[in-house]
Each structure stands twice: as C-alpha cells, then as structure tokens.
Design a protein around this nucleic acid. Structure first.
Length: 259
DNA sequence: ATGTCACTTTACAAGTGA
C-alpha cells in the first residue's frame, strides 16, 4: 500500500501537478492540505477520471484538507471534537483499505511571540487528546504538522533554535503524540540522517540553497508501523522546472507499506 | 533568513497568511 501526504498550497494552482503525481506514483491514499477551496469547487471530476474518489473538507481561501483514494472511502469525519478553531477546515478522517487515516493541517503559529503561536500549542493539545481516544489500532495521523520534531529535521539548527517550527514547546506537543503510541515513519526510515526535508520556503531561494525542513509527517500506530517499507520525498515536485505549472512550497511524502 | 506565492477585495494595488 502506498500513501502520500502533500501540502499542495491551493489545489486549483496545483491540479496539473497533482494529476501527474497520481499517474506517476499510483498511490492508494493521498492526504492533501491547504486545498483552499470550498467543497463544491474541489476538482472532483478530474481526480475521478484517474480512478480516485475524494472526501473533502474545504473552505474558501485558507486551509482545507482532502483524502483521495482508489479504494472505497468510509466513515468520513470532518473536524474533531475539542478543536479550538472549529471554523477552520484543518482535519478530515476516513477509513480506507483497513486503515483509519487522520489528515491534519496544523495551525502555523506565525512566530513564537505572536498570539497565533499559543493557538497552535492549544490546537496540538486538543488534537492529541482526541487522537489518544481513537480506538482503531490501524491508525495513521499524517499531514502538515508545521513542527520539526527534532534538530535532525532542520537544515540549520543553530539558525532555527527557538523559532516557530523548531521551538521546544511545539516539539514537546509532537513528542506527546509519539509517547501516546505513534511512530514517526519518516524518522524511522531515515534513522539518524538529517531530513528528508519536505518543505522549503518560497522566499530567499530556500530550495536552491538547501534550506529545508521536515514538517510533513506520517505517524502510525504499531500495527501499521510494523508494515513500513520505505519513505521517500518527491523533490522533483518542488522544482520550478519539473512538472506542469509552479511548485508548491511542500514536496509529496511517499510512504510504502507491506500489504 | 527572507531573492515568493496564492488568496482576497468598496479590486486593476495592497494587505494577509504562509
């Protein structure tokens, strides 16, 4: 089984690349973030033409998540109980091929000194409370966490020390998710090697300069983690020249599991 | 750290969010 998570930063802008990713990688499940469209504007017919169904939880302009799959999508849930910002479309869950998938777009937080950072911490607390009560042993929690779990996930730890996306309080929140029985599949696959990075800021030529972060995560309970075969990042999708149209600032993360 | 991108609007430039 192949699962992809990708923050597309507008599905309208990224549709040609998304269709290319579906055709090239043939994933079973795709978790998207920052679709930035209401559900009635989601390009459903285009993904259906490639054999995929979709469950969407969108909103205009900001946020928005979706789960695509070439298998039946069951028990769809939008949002989660206890969400501190329920007006923002950040979480969708569904069961596909025996796996309970929770697709998240975590609050960015802007900067540590910004009130949005406190919202981020509270949101992660609420997410963890909810996830810990989800009974399914075949659970995957994946998406754009907007947190680098450790310094291995930062291109320049000294430059990022204490800053949003790399600060201790937010890392502690991710640590609690892991302590609650989830394995970080990207880190498991990479061992002690840095990265693999999944996000490069559009500004300052960050991709070209290698200024990457690993903030797009796939967390799984033991029954799923035991099936881990590989985790790769499709860096070509971050290149302006590869593919059709402009790139997202995130690259797709591809996880292969034993069937 | 900030060489950009995508969104929206008392829109055709500027603010916001990332």
């Amino acid at each position: 089984m192949r699962l992809i998570t990708w923050n597309v930063n507008s599905i309208r802008q990224r549709l040609p690349r998304l269709l290319g990713v579906l055709g090239r990688h043939e994933p079973d499940i795709v978790c998207l973030q920052e679709t930035k469209v209401a559900d009635d504007a989601f390009p459903l017919a285009e993904v259906e033409a490639l054999g995929y169904g979709a469950a969407t939880f969108g909103q205009r302009s900001y946020n928005g998540v979706a789960i695509l799959a070439r298998h039946p999508i069951a028990e769809v849930a939008r949002g989660f109980p206890g969400d501190p910002v329920p007006e923002e479309a950040r979480v969708i869950a569904a069961t596909v091929a025996g796996v309970r998938v929770i697709d998240v777009y975590v609050v960015n937080g802007k900067e540590v000194a910004n009130p949005a950072y406190e919202v981020k911490l509270g949101w992660l607390d609420a997410l963890t409370r909810w996830v810990s009560g989800v009974e399914d042993p075949n659970l995957v929690v994946t998406g754009d966490f907007n947190v680098t779990p450790t310094d291995l996930d930062v291109h320049d730890p000294a430059a990022w020390a204490g800053r949003n996306l790399a600060s201790d309080p937010e890392r502690e929140r991710v640590r609690r998710l892991l302590d609650d029985g989830l394995t970080d599949l990207g880190r498991t696959a990479a061992g002690t090697a840095p990265g693999p990075f999944t996000f490069w800021d559009y500004r300052a030529g960050a991709f070209h300069r290698g200024w990457g972060l690993r903030i797009d995560l796939v967390l799984a309970r033991p029954a799923v983690a035991a099936r881990l075969r590989s985790v790769t990042v499709d860096r070509d999708e971050r290149k302006p020249t590869a593919g059709e149209g402009k790139p997202s600032d995130h690259a797709p993360v591809i996880v292969d599991l034993d069937d």
